[in-house]
Simulated assay, not measured.
Amino acid sequence: MKSYLLGVWNTLDPLYYSFSRLKYVKDLEKNRTLFRVRLTRYKGRSTVLKDGTVIHKNDLLLKIHLHNVKIMNELYAVTSDTRRAVYIYHMVKRAMPMLAKYVKNHYRYNDIKGIIGITSLHNGSKRLGFDNITIPNPVYRTYKQMTFTPINYIASSSRHEEPMYLFMSKDELVNRYGLED
């Protein structure tokens, strides 16, 4: 059943991508990384990040989406949740320098305040430099938890963490992962 659902997801993902305004972040060889991104205006409560950056309502952020189909295809044969988590952590870590380069080269670089994502895969995210912020609105948090149910099912994850915002300031991203030109 899971392989069938993954096949359907593989088929529908290009359609979703075409309607979502997402753009791929590419590596040095122009291959697609596991990040897909778009600019967004933050609509939540003001929050202070660990580096002192304050994110206010309507600040311009780069919203990051993990390319879940790509991840699931690569992890299909891995059955241990622990191994999956470690593998995903390293996939994200390898893609972060390309995300930093994407932001540094973006025509709105001076306007972008940071990056944001929403995920239930937040174990290890602090080691990557993210701030984990609880989604304060219980209705939105429940909605996001429901939308993550299919990916959790396909991923065979026995752990269903609550979704959280992941934030990183632009300065933290560039200082931590920026490639020297």
Results as ranks from 00 to 15, higher is better:
residue 70 K to Y: 06
residue 7 G to E: 06
residue 80 S to M: 04
residue 39 L to Q: 12
residue 49 L to R: 08
residue 62 L to R: 05
residue 174 V to P: 05
residue 168 M to W: 05
residue 9 W to L: 14
residue 113 K to R: 15
residue 23 K to N: 12
residue 154 I to V: 11
residue 55 I to E: 07
residue 60 L to C: 03
residue 75 L to K: 00
residue 168 M to P: 04
residue 58 N to A: 03
residue 78 V to H: 00
residue 116 I to W: 05
residue 113 K to M: 09
residue 53 T to F: 07
residue 85 A to K: 07
residue 136 P to V: 11
residue 176 R to N: 08
residue 23 K to Q: 10
residue 40 T to F: 07
residue 129 G to W: 00
residue 92 V to M: 13
residue 49 L to A: 12
residue 131 D to R: 03
residue 26 K to W: 03
residue 8 V to G: 02
residue 88 I to Q: 09
residue 33 T to V: 09
residue 46 S to Y: 07
residue 84 R to I: 08
residue 85 A to M: 04
residue 151 I to K: 13
residue 115 I to G: 09
residue 159 R to K: 15
residue 170 K to Q: 02
residue 40 T to E: 13
residue 6 L to C: 03
residue 109 Y to H: 08
residue 123 N to I: 02
residue 114 G to M: 05
residue 48 V to N: 13
residue 120 S to W: 14
residue 100 A to H: 02
residue 181 D to E: 15
residue 158 S to A: 13
residue 115 I to E: 02
residue 76 Y to Q: 12
residue 176 R to T: 13
residue 164 M to T: 12
residue 164 M to S: 04
residue 146 M to L: 13
residue 30 K to D: 10
residue 55 I to P: 09
residue 139 V to I: 14
residue 114 G to W: 07
residue 95 A to R: 14
residue 65 H to K: 06
residue 147 T to D: 02
residue 131 D to T: 04
residue 50 K to P: 03
residue 113 K to H: 04
residue 79 T to R: 03
residue 99 L to M: 06
residue 152 N to S: 08
residue 2 K to I: 02
residue 152 N to I: 06
residue 112 I to F: 01
residue 114 G to Q: 05
residue 96 M to Y: 00
residue 2 K to F: 03
residue 65 H to E: 03
residue 177 Y to F: 14
residue 33 T to N: 10
residue 97 P to W: 02
residue 11 T to H: 12
residue 19 F to T: 15
